[in-house]
């Protein structure tokens, strides 16, 4: 038989975005800086646009598509198109830079303004391995998350602490929401309404990962 679509190999797909001030380590949550002969430096220089990862949550196979902002946040040009279709948004600050923490409120406003009403926001304090330079305590993070009524984790892309937990926890929350809503996710319309970060993501934007 020709033209038959292959059987679906997943129960749900989710688009997730990483947002936050530049330098907070968003890119590092997508592309760890590994020195290796098989990992030519040009890949770390180009940076990663997005990753597809398949995880299992509550017995369901979930495909995550996780997007980085391609440096657009530096120019405050993240467009509404970037947020379109996103079911989860990871709002990241740097625990060693209190200014990025102070900006979380701004990011929260921007995200709620542009993203889908039911998009789940998740607060992450990155670089928690660096206790010497820490400027924002874990309690401050927890308090803010409570105030905004969103889940919170501290993570370290460098030591890989909690990096996977962010995606597993966020996916699990979104999954529950959709079970509650009885929609079962939007796996059927894959490819449509997809997240668009292509504008401004042109070649030449350097990714200074883990600076």
């Amino acid at each position: 038989m020709s033209g038959r679509a292959p059987s679906r190999s997943y129960d749900m797909i989710m688009k997730l975005l990483l947002v936050g001030d530049s330098g907070v380590g968003k890119s590092c949550l997508l592309l760890r800086f590994v020195e290796d002969k098989f990992n030519p430096s040009f890949i770390t220089t180009i940076g990663i646009d997005f990753k597809i990862r398949t995880i299992e949550s509550n017995g369901k196979k979930i495909k995550l598509q996780v997007w980085d902002t391609a440096g657009q946040e530096r120019f405050r040009t993240i467009t509404t198109a970037y947020y379109r279709g996103a079911m989860g948004i990871v709002l990241i600050y740097d625990v060693t830079d209190s200014r990025t923490f102070e900006n979380v409120d701004n990011w929260y406003q921007t995200v709620t303004q542009h993203a889908n009403e039911d998009a789940q926001i998740f607060l992450v304090g990155n670089k928690c391995d660096d206790n010497e330079s820490r400027q924002v305590s874990k309690e401050q993070g927890q308090d803010l998350a409570q105030k905004l009524n969103i889940p919170f984790l501290e993570a370290s892309a460098k030591s890989n602490e909690n990096v996977d937990s962010i995606f597993y926890e966020l996916a699990s929350i979104i999954q529950e929401k959709h079970v509650d809503a009885g929609t079962g996710g939007n796996a059927a319309n894959s490819g449509s309404g997809s997240v668009d970060v292509s504008q401004g993501g042109a070649a030449g934007i350097k990714n200074n990962c883990c600076s």
Partner: peptide
């Protein structure tokens, strides 16, 4: 199932 896609490089 799992893949990483780089940004555009000219």
């Amino acid at each position: 199932d799992n893949i990483g896609v780089s940004r555009p490089a000219a």
